[in-house]
Structure formats: C-alpha cells, structure tokens
C-alpha cells in the first residue's frame, strides 16, 4: 500500500465549528471478517482435479 506524504491542511482553529477534516491518510482500523462465498458446487470446483486424477491413472 502506498503511503501519501504526511500533509497538514490549514484548519479552522475554532473548536466550536467542527472542522475536523483529518489529514491522516489511514481510515480507522476496525477489521471485519469477510468469509469467502461459495458460488460453485464442490463437484464443479473439483472437476479439474478429477480430470487430472483421471489422466494420471490413464497414464499409469
């Protein structure tokens, strides 16, 4: 991941007007799991491996 140079934007120092545009380039660290979804049946996904097995057995 490329890091942008550390930048400090001119800020409104009046704390009453919320001008909290951060210059941090990194968003908050709050990991969320994303389990990989299954879209192919196991039969389909393992077809190629079955074919390879068949070929190996044929050559044997």
């Amino acid at each position: 991941m490329i890091e942008t140079p550390d930048m400090r934007a001119a800020r409104d120092t009046d704390t009453k007007t919320a001008t909290s545009v951060e210059t941090d380039w990194a968003p908050p660290a709050a990991p969320l799991e994303m389990p990989r979804q299954m879209l192919e049946t196991e039969t389909r996904a393992s077809e190629s491996s079955l074919l390879r097995l068949f070929r190996k057995r044929s050559r044997a």
């Binding site: 991941m1 490329i2 942008t4 930048m7 919320a18 001008t19 909290s20 545009v21």
Partner: peptide
Amino acid sequence: AFDRLLAGQSGPGQIFYRRRT
C-alpha cells in the same frame, strides 16, 4: 488533487485516500 481537496475543506467528516499497488 487530494491535497487541494483537503486544503479547501471545512466541516465535519474525514476524507481518506489510499492507493493499492
């Protein structure tokens, strides 16, 4: 462009930029 955007901003919210290699 991100630099210019940040320089002109005021108001709540945070704006992030990241680039994947």
